[in-house]
Nucleic acid binder design. Structure first.
Lengths: 121, 121
DNA sequence: GCTGTACTCAACCGATCGGTTGAGGAGACG
DNA sequence: CGTCTCCTCAACCGATCGGTTGAGTACAGC
């Protein structure tokens, strides 16, 4: 799993980790604070944090023996970009297909035109 | 992995599956067509498709012996909602923290209550 | 009906994942 | 110094994952 996007998606595929992200969105927290609500060992939480860190979703600094965890917002942009791209394509195509189906009750056609006008902004 | 969002994120954590989604955004395709560019067996592709289907990202219909795969755009909304929520929170907080740091060169952490107690042992 | 095409199901395999326990490392504090 | 708190590293374990091969299902066409 080399690429960044895969690590990000994989990191967020776990509900516990998504929950941690949600908590961190409200402010930095120590490992102990994050571990609080979950019924797992501190080591497990530490591992989750490592996964999030490797994905670039959080960063850990040092404050005495505490390791405050900070949510990195930039990564969300990466996902949003990926998402928006295909979401728009798919929705646009969906609208177009719907249109095509209405004007073509039977038979087949060679190939759809590369583009059409009138797509909403 | 019961919840929908986890399945969606997990499905997209694989570059091959993201690639398939990208391809499907341009139009429906059969399993064979999707398998084309990848150096894996048809069965592996079929499995990937099943993962995407279980996540609600695609649907499979029947056309003679072909099984055309269709991208379901709605699911992207689910992710976008989740993303946007925390992205906004995090960025807002980031801006706020930045401001706070400037007016607070040292000292004075809120130091949340050391609640705790119990758990294991 | 037989054959070929398109695809799925089932069993298996090595690698990774999420969790555990156990053993520390780093720093505050008596 | 010793000790306590906070946290990480290492080893292990069962479950799941991504891939394989082999067999089977569904349909078209001769």
């Amino acid at each position: 799993m080399a690429d960044r996007l895969s690590r990000v998606f994989a990191a967020l595929a776990d509900p516990t980790r998504r929950d941690m992200v949600a908590r961190l969105a409200a402010g930095d927290a120590t490992v102990n604070e994050l571990a609080g609500p979950y019924q797992v060992t501190l080591q497990a939480v530490s591992k989750h944090l490592k996964v999030l860190e490797d994905a670039g979703l959080v960063s850990r600094t040092r404050d005495a023996q505490r390791r405050p965890v900070h949510l990195e917002a930039e990564v969300f942009d990466l996902m949003t970009k990926w998402l928006e791209r295909y979401r728009r394509e798919a929705e646009e195509r969906y609208r177009r297909l719907d249109d095509v189906l209405r004007s073509m009750p039977d038979d087949v056609h060679p190939a759809p035109p590369p583009h059409e006008g009138g797509a909403p902004t």
